[in-house]
Amino acid sequence: MAALSPAELEARLRLHALPAIGPRRMSRLLEVFGSASAALSAPASAWRSLGLPAEAAEQRRSPSTRDSAASALAWLEQANHHLLCLHDSDYPALLAELTDAPPLLFVRGDPALLERPQIAMVGSRRASKPGLQSAEAFARCLAQSGFVVTSGLALGIDGAAHRGALAGGRTVAVLGTGLQCLYPQRHAGLADDIVAAGGALVSELPLDCPPQAANFPRRNRLISGLSLGVLVVEASPSSGSLITARLAAEQGREVWALPGSIHHPGAHGCHQLIREGAQLVESVAHILESLQGWQMPLASVEEVASATDHPLLALLRAAPASSESLALSSRQALPEVLAQLTELELDGLIAREGNLWLACR
């Protein structure tokens, strides 16, 4: 699609600023009238004939709507700020497949990253320490394997996934607020790190949209829609992460889940997903094996899969252990064991908690 004229861009931003106009309604307006400019100038009766709220037709010419569009245009003048429009050549192809794909997508950072193969990682905001370690280790290994790790910038598993990805490659954060209303504020520094490392922050919402409970489940469809599949690391049965996983399944994406202890409430959501058909994964190798067409040059499936048969990993699957006890059990010198443990950790197969090593499950 050709680049939008300044007038059409401003018109789309005005439509986008209307609270009553969501993705489907905006797409409908563009389809019926041919452009946002024509939709804005159409009589109110034409809007009502499409089943649109009367207040939407009234608000489209309001000063607040014009001010919102002007603010967005000023934001777009700044470095690293972008707007992607549905049907444009640079709009992410996987996301465009959704029936409710966002007509406008605000991006801070590298928009080209959204076209690269992505793996989404989601989970509990109140994750356990082993859960956070697993998320970080899996994300690092996936990023090292050439995938972009996508998550929601929330506390807990999301934050750990972004940090792990930054240690191995790039990551995308999909927000449930406008890009000028970052939430949670505790992750403002992490958001800056993501952009500085060549990643991206993404939102379909108006730039000044504050946190609203209804927008976070809506955001989840973008996390899964951008990705080849979704990995749920730790979640209770009531977690929003299960919404993301079910959306992924509806969108035809892969769904993976890490199992955990039956005594840990944070594992029950993952177990529920597995019972419903999600793939149980214990290592990054299992994810790579299920994506045969997306093997990356930085870490082949064969290399990672061979690590799953490692004798030290077999010992750690039986029970967490210290480096010293592993050296005794495996009858190897401690320096050799430490070197092997480092390799397994880099592959995302094990994690360290205090002086103990444990298998990532």
Rank of each mutant, 00 (worst) to 15 (best):
Ala69Leu: 04
Val337His: 06
Pro335Gly: 04
Leu155Arg: 12
Glu31Trp: 04
Ala54His: 11
Phe33Ala: 02
Arg317Lys: 14
Pro6Thr: 01
Asp158Leu: 10
Asp100Thr: 13
Leu18Arg: 03
Leu316Gln: 00
Asp110Arg: 15
Gln118Cys: 12
Glu58Phe: 10
Leu207Asn: 06
His271Asp: 08
Asp90Lys: 06
Val148Met: 07
Ala245Lys: 03
Val202Arg: 09
Leu205Pro: 10
Arg170Lys: 15
Ile194Arg: 05
Ile287His: 00
Pro53Thr: 00
Thr65Met: 01
Leu231Tyr: 00
Val149Ile: 05
Leu328Thr: 15
Leu228Asn: 09
Ala79Gly: 13
Arg116Glu: 05
Leu105Asp: 05
Arg14Gly: 04
Glu77Arg: 15
Ser35Asn: 00
Trp47Arg: 02
Ala96Leu: 07
Ser49Cys: 14
Ser89Gln: 14
Gly152Ser: 11
Ser290Asp: 14
Leu356Ile: 01
Pro53Asn: 02
Arg317Pro: 13
Pro311Tyr: 05
Glu31Asp: 10
Leu358Trp: 10
Ser62Val: 01
Asp158His: 09
Ser64Gln: 15
His271Glu: 07
Leu179Lys: 03
Pro184Glu: 03
Asp192Tyr: 05
His271Pro: 07
Gly152Arg: 03
Arg361Thr: 14
Val255Gly: 06
Ala248Glu: 01
Cys209Leu: 15
Pro320Ala: 00
Leu175Ile: 04
Gly178Tyr: 08
Leu18Phe: 07
Leu73Phe: 03
Asp90Pro: 08
Ala214Asn: 12
Pro53Leu: 04
